[in-house]
Design a protein around this nucleic acid. Structure first.
Ligand code: MN
Ligand code: MN
Ligand code: ZN
Ligand code: ZN
Lengths: 144, 144
DNA sequence: AGTATCAGTGAGACCTAGTATCATAACAAG
DNA sequence: CTTGTTATGATACTAGGTCTCACTGATACT
């Protein structure tokens, strides 16, 4: 079963209809190995209406097919999610995104809940830095 | 020395000019005990131009007079910062914001840097939950 | 297969949260 | 008080996204 088929099944399980527009958006999304913006998808799936692309991105986010990546400049990108809840380490120089193996604040959430009497329901966490390639002066000089 | 005067001194130290517009924005900012949006300040400081309010908010952020709070719906708010780098716990029900005592991911940042060979330069972290007041059914029923 | 139902679509208006431009004003150093 | 530079604000513009609503078509049911 292709990745496309498996995303389609996921949506069917959640009682969403499978339409040509949705299939086109999903195919565009799956064509990316790194992160991408909604505008990228709009450009790739020209026949699909702007509103429908946004609606489908929300659907895919809710279905955990993609995860959202907040870039340091505040812009929101997406990437295909091949695991559950996790966080990102974004290289501010080349844009490369590293998925962190697991949620690194799980313990903290429990401690905080105890200390503050809040019931903690969610969190946003992103790390920004420079990858080893981008830190190497040679690589920096050679960058396009 | 009033809080207003002390913010003015801070800007002077950083070689920024003190103008009536800036004073008006600072006064509006300091009138808030919780978090507020830029639109709130624009409404309060009617005589000040829209662009100037945004410019001044950036100035105040850079000067650590305010800190930015990312709400769960993605909207950006501000609040007066009375300490250095820290994070927030936002009640998604009443909007109350709790400042966390210190940066809770300092150790994590060092571990991650070692594990990934990234040089980590920054991070975004916000927690969302429900405060004890909002979790109490009585309080919920009584809320306006 | 035919049909009914309601979820989904897309053109385009609209909106929010800002940024860019640039002629004009005014702060603060000397 | 002059001067050089910084700041201002009207206004136009933009990015990113939502709303509306008549229409379409996917799916379930017969
Ligand atoms: Mn991810
Ligand atoms: Mn704070
Ligand atoms: Zn890099
Ligand atoms: Zn609360």
């Amino acid at each position: 079963m292709s990745e496309l088929e498996s995303v389609i099944r996921r949506l069917e399980e959640l009682d969403h209809r499978i339409t040509p527009s949705r299939v086109a958006v999903i195919a565009a999304v799956l064509s990316h190995s790194g992160h991408f913006s909604v505008e990228d998808i709009i450009r790739q799936a020209r026949a699909v209406g702007r509103a429908t692309v946004f609606r489908t991105m929300r659907l895919l986010t809710d279905a955990d097919v993609v995860c959202r990546v907040l870039l340091e400049d505040g812009s929101l990108h997406y990437r295909v999610s091949r695991r559950g809840h996790h966080h990102h380490l974004v290289c501010v120089s080349c844009g490369n995104v590293q998925d962190l193996d697991e949620c690194v604040v799980g313990d903290l959430v429990r401690e905080l809940a105890a200390a503050t009497e809040y019931e903690i329901e969610g969190h946003w966490l992103e790390f920004y830095g420079r990858c080893s390639t981008c830190r190497s002066p040679v690589a920096v000089a050679a960058r396009p």
